[in-house]
């Protein structure tokens, strides 16, 4: 019997473990270096604008249509057994706990994670990162830490805004299409909303922000071989951040809500 499949599985396992180790070491180095001065405030502000402010349109659009679809789909399902009154609760809980952070995370991973990997990757292949070192500037402090910090701070804010916009989308469909009473819809939304729902989404968003920035910086920092290498790093950053968001989402949900 050929052992080739077993050998292949072994190689893949070793490669995966090596990657996990490398990403963990990268994150540890970024945090260790980034916690020491000098702190590059301008870089942090620039990244907060890039991640938070400029992502607002795409996250807002995603949120409003998600809220609208959620209300509509809930209605078509719940109307079968006269449970339409649960729609405000379903919309707000789904958005704050899951859809807000996950969809905002995936959209930001596509927009910002790719941009980070492309920018840092280009800096790597054109020796700009080496140039930083020769100018007595630690690339982890100047490039990586501001992105990690900005993503961890701005993604929760972005998710809170997405939650509001998503609830507004559900409200618009419920009130103007499905003919719900507007005050009752809002009252039901607020009555069933708990602090834990919002808090879990905010914590998830901070973790997702860290993962997006980490994978964007890691893939960019390790890109090789010119334009093709930068392209590969960009793709890898988006794919790995998206997979990590979905994976961590499960474990965070379990940590918050499993009884």
């Amino acid at each position: 019997m050929s052992l080739a499949p077993v050998a292949l599985l072994g190689r893949m396992t070793l490669a995966f473990l090596a990657l996990v180790g490398s990403v963990t070491a990268f994150a540890a180095q970024a945090i260790a270096q980034g916690c020491r001065p000098p702190y590059y405030r301008q870089q942090i502000v620039r990244q907060m604008l890039e991640i938070g402010y400029y992502s607002l349109p795409v996250v807002g659009l995603t949120a409003i249509f998600t809220g609208m679809v959620l209300a509509l789909q809930s209605y078509t399902g719940f109307a079968r057994f006269s449970a339409e009154s649960a729609i405000p609760q379903v919309v707000v809980v789904s958005l704050t706990r899951e859809l807000g952070p996950v969809l905002a995370g995936l959209m930001v991973a596509g927009r910002v994670g790719a941009a980070m990997a492309a920018e840092i990757g280009t800096m790597r292949v054109t020796e700009q990162i080496d140039a930083l070192t020769t100018l007595s500037t630690d690339p982890f402090r100047y490039l990586v830490m501001p992105r990690l910090l900005a993503a961890m701070v701005t993604l929760p804010i972005l998710v809170l805004v997405a939650d509001l916009i998503g609830v507004l989308g559900g409200y618009l469909v419920a009130v103007y299409k499905l003919e719900f009473n507007d005050l009752t819809y809002l009252k039901n939304t607020l009555d069933y909303l708990e602090v834990e729902d919002v808090l879990s989404g905010v914590v998830k968003a901070a973790v997702f922000g860290f993962l997006i920035a980490l994978m964007g910086c890691y893939q960019g920092y390790h890109s090789r071989g010119g334009a093709q290498g930068v392209g590969a790093a960009t793709t890898a950053a988006v794919v790995s951040a998206s997979v990590l968001i979905l994976t961590f989402n499960y474990f965070l949900t379990e940590a918050f809500f499993a009884r």
Partner: peptide, 11 residues
Amino acid sequence: GMLFQGGALFD
């Protein structure tokens, strides 16, 4: 001080 082959200027 270092002069890189491609300049390595921050674009």
